[in-house]
Amino acid sequence: MKTRIIKPAEITDAVADLIGKASFKLPNDVEELIDRMLEREDSDMGRMGLRVLKENSAIAEADGLPLCQDCGMVVVFAEIGRGVLIDGDLEDAVNAGVEEAYRKFSLRMSVVADPLKRVNTGTNAPAVVHAELTGGDGLALTVYLKGGGSENMSALRMFRPTDGADAIIDFIEEIVVKAGPNPCPPLFLGVGIGGTADSAMINAKKAVLRGAGTRNPDPAYAELEERIEERLNATNIGPMGFGGRSTVARVYIREAPTHIAMLPVALNLNCHSLRYRRAEL
């Protein structure tokens, strides 16, 4: 197979462009889900919250203001074809794109260089980069902007392997009710089931990026997603926690093989502002 060379500058430009798009406008399928919740919401306070979200999107686009002042920490998933040679350092190229975008688009710099010393890097870099090898000679980049308020509500529980779906649903309800208004519902909830503690959490992240309107291709998991949505939307937490049936916009499960002794379940609570974009180079 002929090797295709990709220059770091192409990656930098793509990352900066994707951050710009993700920061100011929600993906169309995310907006469609918000519209659908508005049709079904019967609480006045809930409808008010959903309408504010729509108005927020319109103002963000018209006034050139980011959807949220928390412009996130950048998470990048890079799928690198085996036929690709990156002529430089992937992480440096990504971070250069982060730096460029946050300055150019007046986004908030929310990253500190050290978790305890807490000095702002002033660039919003570094990003968290997950790279994996795939077939072909393409490079796919998914840029995901994750806010601190919702990320702080993340959870992981290592279940007994003999615990089943009901125990998982109870756990998810417990975490989402405890989080309540904090992660800015309605949520896009990623659930990583199986794997190891670390891979379950990465799967919970990937899960919410698979397409807002989609279901898990396995009918058993698709049904489980629906059961979880039903349970969570009966809590009446509602948009912003002010009450209503729109507590979760959609649940996304990503499952993985695991150990005979294990059943990890990781939760990625994403706020209503699901900001991501994908591009293929």
């Binding site: 919250g49 504010v52 979200l53 108005e55 927020n56 999107s57 103002i59 963000a60 006034d63 203001l65 980011p66 959807l67 949220c68 002042q69 928390d70 806010g147 308020g149 208004p181 800015c184 912003m240 926690g241 002010f242 706020c271 209503h272 502002s273």
Partner: peptide, 13 residues
Amino acid sequence: FATFGGAGAYLAA
């Protein structure tokens, strides 16, 4: 009081 989380552009106005 709470205001609308994630509606930063709306509130800026």
